[in-house]
Design a protein around this nucleic acid. Structure first.
Length: 320
DNA sequence: ATAGGTCAAGCGAGG
DNA sequence: CCTCGCTTGACCTAT
């Protein structure tokens, strides 16, 4: 099964027509630091509970569209790295809601993944940053545990290496040491992704410095690869990344297109960074005959995916 | 009700 | 030295 999915936000459900009276459905309710420190954990727990309930509603909507791949927001449980989940007064209700979402996903063969933010840096020399990273990654893993998922790359927790400050070999060594501080469940889900800067980590470097050492799978990002090829063609890099996944798990790839190109007719186009993601995607995605699940990283989220499926109706064959 | 200002996390790049 | 971009725009306050 080849799936195509979108990330974290369902614009359709999150922005109901004015006057429709429909509630906003979103998993991204959060609070600023000052607010929750003033209001306490009960406040955060309410947000988390509503987010968790809405996750299932989004999956139900996805199912109706034939979309069976979704990235779960890292903010579903706001500020989750600042406390134990069991400290939330609504913990049991949240756990139940997450389990229901997980049950729905299993029943309908949906794949759920996460992509913790760029502040999760396992290889940094700053020990407090590593400590926070470990807590954050564990929370993502706990969320999947609560959903009832057996630990596996099927529900991947995908991150970037994020630093090269004192040399990639040094970073890799430290990264791997810290990797073994993670729980087994978390490690069973953790994957790494190639970067969008020439100076950072290409697929080839991730393969040699990380995969060959600890067997961790590599998530291939088509768009990032164009900025950091490591001397490989797109097809070579894709095949190398795909080779790092266990045979019984469909590899995930990320796909997006250039915002600068998309808006080249605008005067402001010159200000858009080369790396910026487009709102929509237009070109057929070449998977070179490989079986992969494609995560679209487009600003227009579900709208971009639905339009892509209209542009390329043959794709629908791959998601049923 | 909405506009505009503001925000929590680490790092690298560009001005 | 400051700002942006990435992860994800959402929150909060004043009008």
């Amino acid at each position: 099964m080849n799936r195509i999915g979108y990330a974290c936000i369902c614009l359709t459900l999150g922005n109901p027509p004015k006057g429709s009276g429909l509630p906003k459905i979103t998993t991204n309710r959060t609070a600023r630091k000052a607010t929750w420190q003033r209001e306490g954990l009960f406040y955060l727990g309410q947000l988390a509970l509503e987010n968790a309930k809405d996750l299932k509603r989004i999956l139900e909507w996805n199912e109706k569209q034939g979309i069976r791949f979704f990235r779960v927001s890292s903010e579903l449980i706001p500020w989750h790295d600042k406390y134990e989940l069991t400290e939330l007064p609504q913990y049991k209700e949240i756990a139940n809601a997450l389990f229901e979402a997980g049950e729905f996903a299993r029943k309908h063969n949906h794949r759920l993944t996460t992509h913790p933010g760029p502040f999760h840096i396992l290889g940094t020399v700053k020990s407090n940053v590593v400590d926070n990273t470990i807590i954050g990654l564990e929370r993502h893993s706990e969320m999947f545990d609560l959903m009832g998922f057996t630990p596996s790359y099927q529900n991947k927790i995908n991150i970037h290496i994020g630093t090269k400050a004192d040399g990639k070999e040094v970073i890799a060594k430290r990264w791997i040491e810290n990797y073994y501080r993670l729980s087994e469940n978390c490690r069973a889900r953790l994957t790494i992704e190639n970067d969008d800067k020439a100076s950072m980590y290409s697929v080839k470097e991730l393969y040699e410095l990380f995969h060959l050492e600890i067997g961790i799978p590599i998530t291939f990002d088509y768009w990032h690869h164009t900025f950091c090829t490591g001397g490989l063609t797109e097809e070579e890099a894709l095949r190398l990344a795909v080779s790092t996944w266990p045979k019984d798990i469909v590899p995930v790839v990320h796909y997006s297109e250039s915002r600068k190109e998309e808006y080249k007719f605008l005067a402001e186009a010159s200000k858009i960074k080369e790396q910026a993601h487009a709102d929509y995607v237009y070109k057929p995605i070449n998977t070179y005959g490989l079986q992969v699940d494609v995560m679209l990283e487009a600003k227009a989220k579900d709208l971009a995916l639905l339009r892509y499926l209209e542009l390329h109706p043959e794709r629908k064959l791959h998601i049923v």
